[in-house]
């Protein structure tokens, strides 16, 4: 079976986004099923974007932001993201969608190896969960 999970990753440009670039420079491999989208701050990620990603074919959504409490370039965008993702996961569970399909991680610009580990772990997790659309195998 050749199903491969499709994963959208929203990375903050100040941290996880840079880490992804560093990973490239360091020639660290991570799973190619992931499509990174660089955003100015995780505080910008409206839960609607996450749900839209699923409705448009994503099987998982990964969000990478700056470490709390003090790393956010805009002071507290990461806390906003934390609260929203926490609530969104609860909401997904109520309608029978696995909350594990959304993952939030703090990854600084210097943590390229962590980024690689998180991506690989998450892809594996989503692969285990299977496709989002029940009919798509």
């Amino acid at each position: 079976m050749s199903w491969r999970p499709r994963i959208i990753a929203f990375f903050c440009k100040w941290c996880a986004g840079s880490a992804a670039e560093t990973a490239g420079v360091m020639r660290l491999r991570y799973d190619p099923n992931i499509v990174p989208i660089i955003v100015p701050c995780t505080g910008r990620i409206d839960p609607q974007l996450v749900v839209s990603a699923f409705l448009n074919g994503a099987d998982g959504v990964l969000i990478g932001g700056c470490h709390t409490p003090n790393d956010c370039h805009y002071s507290s965008g990461n806390f906003k993201a934390f609260k929203r993702v926490y609530m969104l996961r609860k909401m997904l569970a109520e309608v029978g969608v696995e909350p594990e399909r959304v993952r939030l991680e703090w990854i600084s610009a210097t943590e390229a190896p962590k980024l690689v580990r998180v991506v690989n772990e998450f892809v594996e997790e989503v692969r285990r969960l299977g496709p989002m659309g029940g009919s798509r195998a």
Binding site: D46, P47, Q48, V51, T68, P69, N70, S76, F79, K80, A81, F82, K83, R84, M87, L88, M91
Partner: peptide
């Protein structure tokens, strides 16, 4: 989703850094 976005913006905004996750 709009509402949880709003709550994310306003819930305990003045004590996020002391309460932490």
């Amino acid at each position: 989703v709009s509402m949880i976005s709003s709550i994310g913006s306003i819930l305990l905004v003045d004590s996020e850094k002391s309460l932490l996750e």
